[in-house]
């Protein structure tokens, strides 16, 4: 069964024909070539496929493309401003928040959603670790990921954010 869905993806409206048995992950990668959205476990365990759906992180592998009809979707591609990296991406680069990089787009999306909503002073380590519980990283040991997200919040507070 084919279904036409309407998404707002990375701030652009888009109509897309999908199979009813297709996940959002498959639609984003295969049809829209948004290959920052990584596929790994396909069962909700790793977070590599994390995208923001109406501003909240979800596993795109656990959602039917059809069920996301009408949603506002943000992927890592959407964090870029032209050729310019988003400040949270710079923070990951500067603080070595990645090694192989496979988990990175998922962590960027979860981290971005946390930092965007956070008010007040520095984010404490426990808050960050809790919010990235659904993102596995097999390389870094998380230390530098936590530091990079903390740094991203500081950059946001300093006015460097979009």
């Amino acid at each position: 069964m084919k279904i036409t869905v309407h998404y707002t993806i990375n701030s652009k409206a888009c109509d897309l024909e999908v199979d009813a048995g297709e996940t959002l992950l498959e639609a984003l990668r295969n049809r829209l070539k948004l290959t920052s959205v990584h596929r790994s476990c396909e069962e909700g365990e790793c977070g590599a496929c994390t995208v923001l759906l109406n501003g909240e992180p979800v596993n795109s592998c656990l959602m039917l493309a059809a069920a996301a009809d009408g949603a506002d979707i943000l992927t890592t591609e959407g964090l870029m401003r032209g050729d310019q990296r988003h400040p949270i991406m710079d923070a990951f680069v500067d603080l070595h928040g990645m090694q192989c990089g496979f988990c990175t787009p998922g962590l960027l999306m979860t981290g971005y959603s946390l930092v965007r909503k956070a008010n007040g002073g520095d984010l404490d380590e426990a808050t960050i670790r809790q919010s990235i519980e659904g993102n596995l990283c097999r390389c870094t040991g998380y230390m530098n990921i936590v530091k990079a997200i903390q740094e991203a919040k500081r950059r946001k507070d300093a006015g460097d954010w979009w």
């Binding site: 069964m1 498959e26 990668r29 596929r39 396909e42 039917l64 059809a66």
Partner: peptide
Amino acid sequence: MNQFIGSRALPDLVYHRP
């Protein structure tokens, strides 16, 4: 639809959203 290599694709679905 080109499935991913090694992916366990979902079966044929008919999707309803009343």
